[in-house]
């Protein structure tokens, strides 16, 4: 069995493994805590998500988050339940995000941004913190993760995008030997990024 070490370090592939880990550690402090706690007694199933309680009483930013998300994913319709759960996770990790999401929505409303790219690019230019906010929104919707926790798994948009070719692990619906068939071809993409690039962080396993 191989250790899963798929790496795309953009400019650190010549560094030693330990150096990589130390650099990650600065970003990964909560992650490391969680890993360390895995050997010890664990959290109960069904623990309520603290973020939810805070938003139960009609937080006005909830629908703003949904609207901003729709623009940033170039999708007209997103699931409000997922939206609420992702939002709760994002502001639980960082309460300042609430205000930042509000401002991002103001920015969106103030102009007429016809694409996710247009909004994201403008946002980063107006305030660098929006890059982090948008990363978290992308990570939430496409990977289903917020506050370093799974919010949704199979409902993550990344699986919607690829559902004609692969299934989310443990949810293969092709029946035995489906994998021998030919999957769809994919053209080389021509689109441009909207934000400045970041270091690609691969979590240690």
């Amino acid at each position: 069995m191989a250790a899963d070490r798929s790496c795309f370090p953009t400019n650190i592939h010549l560094a030693s493994p330990n150096a990589m880990r130390m650099r990650r550690a600065l970003r990964m402090s909560r992650r490391d805590m969680l890993l360390g706690a895995m050997g010890a007694a664990v959290v109960a199933l069904g623990a309520s998500r603290p973020g939810f309680a805070a938003t139960e009483e009609a937080d006005p930013v909830v629908p703003l988050f949904l609207a901003v998300s729709q623009r940033l994913t170039d999708r007209d319709v997103l699931d409000p339940q997922i939206s609420h759960a992702l939002y709760a996770g994002i502001i639980h990790a960082n309460p300042e995000r609430r205000e930042q999401i509000h401002k991002l929505h103001d920015l969106m409303a103030s102009g007429s941004f016809a694409s996710a790219r247009a909004l994201a690019s403008a946002a980063e230019h107006s305030d660098p913190v929006f890059k982090d906010v948008i990363h978290e929104i992308m990570t939430g919707w496409y990977r289903g993760v917020a506050d370093q926790k799974v919010v949704v798994y199979r409902s993550a948009l990344m699986f919607d995008i690829t559902k004609d070719a692969v299934y989310p692990k443990t949810y293969a619906a092709g029946g035995p030997f489906y994998w021998t068939q030919t999957p769809p071809e994919v053209a080389v993409p021509t689109g441009e990024p909207a934000l400045s690039p970041s270091k690609f962080v691969v979590e240690p396993t």
Binding site: V42, G46, D79, I82, K149, V152, S155
Partner: peptide, 28 residues
């Protein structure tokens, strides 16, 4: 949508699950 807790259970916690979770974990 599959909204989840994101929490893990220790390997010896074999608590009975409710119908929807039994379905998700065994049938889905």
């Amino acid at each position: 949508p599959d909204i989840r807790t994101g929490e893990l259970t220790r390997i010896d916690r074999l608590d009975e699950m409710d119908g929807q979770h039994v379905y998700d974990a065994n049938c889905a």
